[in-house]
Amino acid sequence: MFGYIIRRGLYGFPILLGVNLLLFLLFFYVNTPDDMAETFLGEKHITQEQIDNWKQEHGYALPRFINTAESFPGMITQTIFWQKSMSLFAFRFGKSDQDNSDIGTEVLRRMPYSLCITVPVFILSLMLNLFVAMIVAFYRATYIDTWVLVLCVIMMSISALFYIIYGQMVFAILLKLVPVSGFDSKAPYFFKFLMLPILMGVISSFGGGVRYYRTIFLEEINKDYIRTARAKGLGEGLVLFKHALKNAMLPILTNVVVMIPFLIMGGLLTENFFGIPGLGSYMIEAISRQDFAVLRSMVFLGAFLYVISLILVDISYTMVDPRIRLG
């Protein structure tokens, strides 16, 4: 398996390189360092000299791909591509163009905020959705199944933003039970700020989750081994939660593990509306401030986590299905 992981890791490298190259072209050709300088210096009182100084101070005064003024390896290393893009492979994200803060430090600082929301939402939704999906699958073709499906379709059709805004209106404004938004990183005060975003996260993922898992369970519940289990006299709880669930793990795992990057990268909408200073919020800030150094780093980090999570999916298959061997 170790060899397989190494091989998959190496396969991931060209993907990341491609992402990196694409990012570089987008950020340094479509939007030139001069444009970046103008954005950051503002348009009120700005001279070409100031633009040149800004580029010098932020390391954008170098040639983009090849530095003909240098001999090898300087002709490669003394370029923007090497210093700004290739350094991402070493997780050296550099400094924010906007405030000179260290991007790596900022990512580590904000990650726990995102995880505070995404992990509980992920775990609670998974448990609730699996449980309800199993019940619905069990009562398939009854009016329970029909009405739950109708409810799911309705819930899926509603935008996540609706849940957030109405959640705030009902629980924070009308009932006055939780703060509308905000965050306090000190325990136990942070707890009251998490309740509403978590609840809304669970509710908004309910419709889609239940429908997806129901389909998986319906496939399993009609199989011979389930009939055999029942014929042996096993209780329905045991049949569903032990046998059916275990055999449905493969598609469930695929769905679950690919969620990892999204857990870490945070929720853009949730964090923005609830004022949670996580990585989703960091991305939004970077977009609105046109902080390309942060955006480059975040996109690269997202791509890296996605490659890793796909490897993890493969590994997890071997754990739940002994028939699968990675070679």
Binding site: I173, P179, G182, F273, G275
Partner: peptide
């Protein structure tokens, strides 16, 4: 920090 105007407005009303 209050990114969106509406939550900030509601906090003011409260």
């Amino acid at each position: 920090m209050e990114k969106e105007a509406i939550p900030g407005w509601n906090k003011f009303l409260q």
